[in-house]
Write a protein that binds this DNA or RNA. Structure first.
Lengths: 227, 227
DNA sequence: GAACCTTAATCAATCGTTTGATTGAGGCAA
DNA sequence: TTGCCTCAATCAAACGATTGATTAAGGTTC
């Protein structure tokens, strides 16, 4: 028998997962190694043993999420090329699916496969922090993580508005992504104004609103009222 | 001669302004009162003397910004009531001005009156942190600060789409605010994707894009292409 | 002299990190 | 099998640095 059953990899993993939860909740400065180790039921010195430093643990956690974390884009059918037949209607469907999948991912609506629901929602808190203030030594990792999202949305926009130049399409993508992320990051603020936060139950309403607003914003769809 | 000319109020003020800059840059946990005091050329014990605690300094800084800080909405002509003659065209102009003013405020484009440009841009970093994770003891202050913005935008939307119910109008406001704030908070991310960040020079382009996208998103404006 | 302001020195607590010791599994020779 | 060694894994304890907070003393102004 081993002294500590199935130690090694298991303990390292427990530290990693505890780190994700605590870092997500309190940020890098706010989180303490002792607190992480306590949650992982491990000794705090093991952080140095396995990851070299607190910074190393943070980077390892981010890398783990990058490789193992939930991927909203992965399960979607790829958007059509601009010259494909019926590109526009296909792209509209892709856009609608994308908004829906991204939102479900952010709100941790989907069935937990390898991640608990608690982990799942912590992942995005983690990413949000890192995306707002990217550390120079982690920009490549971050870019690689968001690139599929950007590419997917860009392909939709290219099929829907091939007449726009690259910058125009980029701005359209910003407007759409802005809305999706707003409902995740500013939910505390929304709850302050509505006295009730949106949750998993309101996913349909939110996804429909964002998609419809964006389709009209792209210059497509029906105009309800003239100027 | 005084040992330090015009100390008292002046020293308190220097501490307050230094606190805003440092808190904005590093957050509450990341900032240290020694660093703040050093930047203010004051003794760190004065934080306890004037503000009681680090927490008190933070709250005082937030309160100072709330009372003295830049106000994008203040200088704008109020949006029209829905039954006012030519309400729609007036509301469109109000919306356009609002987006422009808000963006200029976020990017610290406007002439510094009492705030340096450094201060001005720090203000919004400060607010962004607080709005994403509002502390229970400060929610009233925060609500009071953002209420004018919400009210102004809501009034515009009410005049443009009086047919929508309250929730529908609220969601519209979210979509518009989301875009404005995206270009402020996620600029680091945008710079990562474009290898160049938007700055004060691109204000026209950004304001025009957001406004046009939003007007179409609201169901108004011209549809460039049918489905 | 009373009220206010400023200072250096110091407090206990906590931080990330380092250390030295202990555990038991696995390898190897006798 | 027995005895000895190596090694990764884990631990409690302590490190120096830094944190926010407190104190006592002295200075300035009225």
């Amino acid at each position: 028998m081993k002294p500590f059953p199935d130690s090694s990899q298991d303990t390292r993993q427990r530290l990693l997962e505890a780190a994700i939860l605590v870092f997500a909740e309190k940020g890098f400065d706010g989180a303490g190694i002792r607190e992480i180790a306590l949650k992982a039921k491990a000794n705090s010195a093991l952080v140095q043993y396995y990851f070299g430093s607190k910074e190393g643990l943070y980077t390892a956690a981010l890398k783990f999420l990058f490789e193992q974390g939930p991927d909203a884009v992965g399960g979607l059918t790829p958007p059509p090329a601009p010259d494909e037949p019926e590109a526009r209607s296909k792209a509209l469907a892709s856009l609608r699916n994308y908004v829906r999948a991204f939102l479900e991912d952010l709100f941790a609506c989907r069935d937990p496969e390898q991640f608990s629901r608690e982990m799942h929602s912590a992942v995005h808190l983690f990413w949000t922090r890192e995306m707002m203030e990217p550390a120079p030594e982690r920009v490549d990792m971050i870019r690689a993580h968001i690139q599929p999202h950007v590419d997917y949305l860009n392909a939709c926009i290219r099929a829907l508005r091939p007449d726009l130049d690259e910058e125009g399409q980029f701005l359209m993508g910003c407007s759409i992504h802005a809305q999706i992320m707003f409902f995740h990051r500013d939910m505390a603020m929304i709850a302050l104004l509505r006295s009730e936060a949106y949750g998993a139950r309101d996913m349909d309403r939110l996804a429909t609103h964002i998609t419809d607003f964006s389709i009209r914003g792209l210059g497509l769809g029906s105009t309800l009222q003239g100027v």
